[in-house]
Design a protein around this nucleic acid. Structure first.
Lengths: 247, 247
DNA sequence: AGAATGATATTATCATATGAATATATCGCG
DNA sequence: CGCGATATATTCATATGATAATATCATTCT
């Protein structure tokens, strides 16, 4: 395992560049759990950066539960169950290069646990201002119904707004999971205006349930929405696979 | 806002000591969102450590979404909604010094979203070895039913085992939330053997539902368990408050 | 007033040195 | 030969001083 020098053209400076490289290498499994990383000097040479940067990166990876440093032994990759998979960096490293059908499933399992409860709480606690915010996001989605690129942003904002409306910061912190899900499905699905229009209707149902404070209906509406979204992803993954197979 | 020199007797070295101090200061609100931290040199002086340590700590806090550093501007505390509240460090900083009734409520809201689904998935996927593991943890709980200190550990292990049995790493990563909840309730509740015995029965129900693969019953059993646990915490918080009031 | 310019404070990075911890090898002794 | 004490080498942990990059702010010029 060797690394290439990082370019400082990378967004966020050398630290971010090295962090992403190393993080991805570990997530990809290039450096397996239990294995030790090259020592700080070697990493410094390989990446072409100072040890200062290397050490900061290692400390950040350690904070995410991915590695553990000890004198003499070196820095070793920890077991996967110690990693904080809800960390947005790890999510990105894991899924930016593509997603397997099983991984998509795991994201939807979590969303099915979180979002119905979030919608429920939102329905109980929403203020008129909150509803107005949702309306605004939904209006943008409607406006960009035929533009899948711009559609994604208000879609994400809509779901995140609901998480915030719970008034529970633990829920809000799960926004990165949903963001990952939406980014993945965006990269996956080809332009699909009728799918987006169907999605709009479901979002509208959800909004109305929240607006009238009907927690049960809000929860149910989210589930329907998630079914639809997962079906979309499932279809796209299938299409992609058969595309590769035939190509 | 000034900081005291850290002792290197602290577990985990200077880095961890400074990280905890700074992290707690921010979580407590001593340094409000939007405010800037003292610059690296000042922090170095105040904590009595080198800039190396300060910079590593700041990078880790940045990775948790709590601060943002820019040249000239300095390092400023980000808005709370950017913090990763599911991070175990942040959870500890938030709740180690005590917990408010509303915060306890927010933890249980999340647990009610997560754990029923986790139990459901566990019921569908559990292997005989998984069941045996749960039995082992439950046996330990039974063994320490009258020893609230040792009871906590297998209790936590039991719940975390279920999260792992989902086979979904996103769920496993929520273990820290449950750990925090159990640690908090442990510090809160006075010795309460009959409460623990009642809890044992509920855990047994849950285990049996998972063992026979009954997802609905497993999910329902968790909810009952959570109701009981929250009621316990609620009672303890009330008792503590009135204790303070009368003392 | 507004744009260009330079001074300044701060982080970002680098290079090097020293300290501390620990796994491994070595040596001495029974 | 076996075993424990000790030495040694390797690695991370921390410290320090210097330079680069960059964003802000005041100032100057138009």
């Amino acid at each position: 395992m060797a690394f290439s020098p990082v370019q400082l053209t990378s967004l966020g400076g050398l630290h971010a560049a090295v962090l992403n490289q190393l993080g991805q290498s570990i997530v990809r499994g290039d450096i397996a759990p239990g294995a030790v990383l090259p020592n700080a000097d070697d990493l410094s040479l390989q990446f072409g950066v100072s040890r200062t940067v290397i050490r900061e990166v290692v400390k950040v990876l350690a904070a995410k539960g991915m590695v553990e440093s000890r004198p003499k032994t070196g820095t070793r990759v920890r077991a996967r169950h110690d990693w904080n998979f809800l960390d947005s960096d790890i999510l990105n490293w894991r899924f930016s290069a593509g997603i397997k059908s099983e991984e998509a499933k795991s994201i939807f399992e979590l969303r099915r646990a979180i979002e119905p409860m979030a919608a429920r709480l939102a329905a109980e606690r929403a203020t008129p201002a909150d509803i107005a915010t949702l309306e605004r996001h939904l209006a943008l989605m409607e406006h960009y119904a035929d533009d899948s690129i711009r559609f994604a942003e208000p879609d994400l904002a809509f779901h995140q707004a609901i998480l915030r409306m719970t008034g529970n910061e633990l829920f809000s912190s799960l926004a990165s999971v949903i963001e990952t899900a939406l980014v993945v499905s965006f990269h996956l699905t080809d332009d699909n205006p009728q799918g987006q229009r169907a999605s709009l209707v479901l979002h509208r149902h959800l909004l109305e349930a929240i607006a009238i404070g009907d927690a049960d209906r809000a929860s149910a509406a989210v589930l329907v929405l998630l079914d639809e979204a997962e079906e979309d992803v499932r279809r796209s993954l299938g299409a992609r696979r058969s595309q590769r197979a035939s190509g």
